[in-house]
Design a protein around this nucleic acid. Sequence first.
DNA 1: ACGATTTGCCAATACGTTTTGGCCACTGAG
DNA 2: CTCAGTGGCCAAAACGTATTGGCAAATCGT
Lengths: 348, 348
Amino acid sequence: MAVKSTGIRDVAKLAGVSVTTVSHVLNDTPHTRVAEETRARVREAAKTLGYGPNRAAQALRTNRSGLIGLLSEEIATTPHAGRIILGAQNAAREHDLTLVIINTDRESGPNSHKDDVQALIDRQVDAVLYATMYHRMVSLPPNLQGLPTVLIDSTDKAGIVPAAVPDEVGGAIAAVTHLVKAGHTRIGFLNNDDDVPATHGRLEGYRSVLAKHEIPYDAALVLSAPSETLPGYELAREILSRSDRPTALFCYNDRMAMGAYRAATELGLGIPDDLSIVGFDNQELIAANLFPGLTTVALPHYEMGAWAVDTLVRLLHGEADRKLLADEPTLLDCPLVIRGSVAAPHAD
Amino acid sequence: MAVKSTGIRDVAKLAGVSVTTVSHVLNDTPHTRVAEETRARVREAAKTLGYGPNRAAQALRTNRSGLIGLLSEEIATTPHAGRIILGAQNAAREHDLTLVIINTDRESGPNSHKDDVQALIDRQVDAVLYATMYHRMVSLPPNLQGLPTVLIDSTDKAGIVPAAVPDEVGGAIAAVTHLVKAGHTRIGFLNNDDDVPATHGRLEGYRSVLAKHEIPYDAALVLSAPSETLPGYELAREILSRSDRPTALFCYNDRMAMGAYRAATELGLGIPDDLSIVGFDNQELIAANLFPGLTTVALPHYEMGAWAVDTLVRLLHGEADRKLLADEPTLLDCPLVIRGSVAAPHAD
DNA sequence: ACGATTTGCCAATACGTTTTGGCCACTGAG
DNA sequence: CTCAGTGGCCAAAACGTATTGGCAAATCGT
């Protein structure tokens, strides 16, 4: 605290060169020529002094803060946001960038979003990540114009910004294929009833697997409701009470699956012996704590966060073409997480 | 992007004063005298130009980055961290500070922690928040010396740093009192078996409520196991199978409570009619999705985050005494969240 | 051996603030 | 009328870095 921290000047003095040279060496400035021996001496000096550049000075000079803002909806309620943050944070660190996080309230409308963006602009972030808490379409606050931006878990209505989203179709395919491979042919699907990409994508995946295995699609096996535990319970209760009940359920998410567990228990159906269940989301708190553990599909939150930062960096370096990327959202893999809720169907 | 953003100079020019004056006015520099009329003119000019200070320049000059680092364990796995972040973030914004988050891996030992701290130091944070994912004692990385620090959800072995922790005892008191008020006298306690403050504090709270209501303490009603769903299930199964089974269970956390739900269901005990349950942690994903909803005790993660930032600011401003604060961790309230898992005991 | 080219380095400036140490003009006291 | 005091403002320096435009010395070609 008392001592002035070491600056580039001290390094220069110790190495017996000018600050210019130190700067050149430490930044590998291209098109500049300094003898290898000198470079070594400078680096040596920097190391022994424990020199690290003063970010503020650097920022002032170069007009780049090294900050990237992560605008995230409701970090609060969902563990998913945590995974995004983690992925973004690690990637940022890799690139020597610093992540600053602003929580934005989905409730409070676009004005609030604008304020949040402004807060980031005031802090002079070099770029921003815009993350929603579930996969949907958004329109971006106008003051984001001109600031490099990448979307996470959402796609831009205007189609002008690169985005990473989960491969909903692929995830559903993995889930249902897993059931089919286990021998199931009567597979119920408890779907969400919102008009969001996941609803359609997962249904598409479900159907495509059936088609591929020449299992006829039976509309009676596909039910919809809000994607909560209670509706999941009710739907499951209904479908499992039928005489021709399915031997397996694919649930839109783990919460609905949790409801299905209860329904199964109440109806005296053992999991996985009498009923196989696959969920979606891989909410550890649910999936790992149900009994038996819930086999489910993981959303690539970590990967989306990391991809977003990497992409941002590539954009900033001009190594990627924004238009090209923005054209179509990038799909990231939704891997199946196998626990204990799937078995072969009864041979009754 | 093309235009240079407005600086203090532009404001000065527009207001017809010197940059010095602008700086004085905009910062309310004490001991400096400038006519009220001039002040108004300056502020006016700043507003019409939409002036905001260049943080980098400010940081360079004042040696304060306006950043505060949040070192958090495993943002990944727990939604709790999200609440801490949110609380800290909002408080930081209030004070015009920026929160930067570093995830630190609990597995990878103290060396990694040191690196993480170093990463923050390199970024020249003004202070750091150190958050653990559950309430315990820690020893701080040595390079945190000299950097103002506040602990969240943990206490410092050396007792030298202020800390905010949940009031475990108070939370348990609220929970058990709730059961007693409902008419229960035989209350089982499924406790954790780790040697952490929560284990002891919650037991203490449990006992104190019994004592206060002159209910004899029965050691047979207190069982311990790792605080997971499965052990919770096993413990509950055991205690509920007894002929003199308790009419209510206080569970160390929501995961154990989730296990207890299953045990109750299997034994044909209805919740809350045949058995009342109270959990701890208020993990929404579990508590709100069980049926019936789990009455539980919320941990003050948001509040700890906010308190920590506020305290840090007070320390930086010299408005609080570190030694005084460090002497004893500050206890934050753990409020009871009432859902549907508690009722009066059977009159059988 | 001599000019031309390249190699290796550096001095000086700018980035946008905050802060120090005044200077000037006006006031009131003597 | 003069002089100390004070209210209102400002010029200039500093913070630590990146960058521009060079200037010597070394190397090369002939």
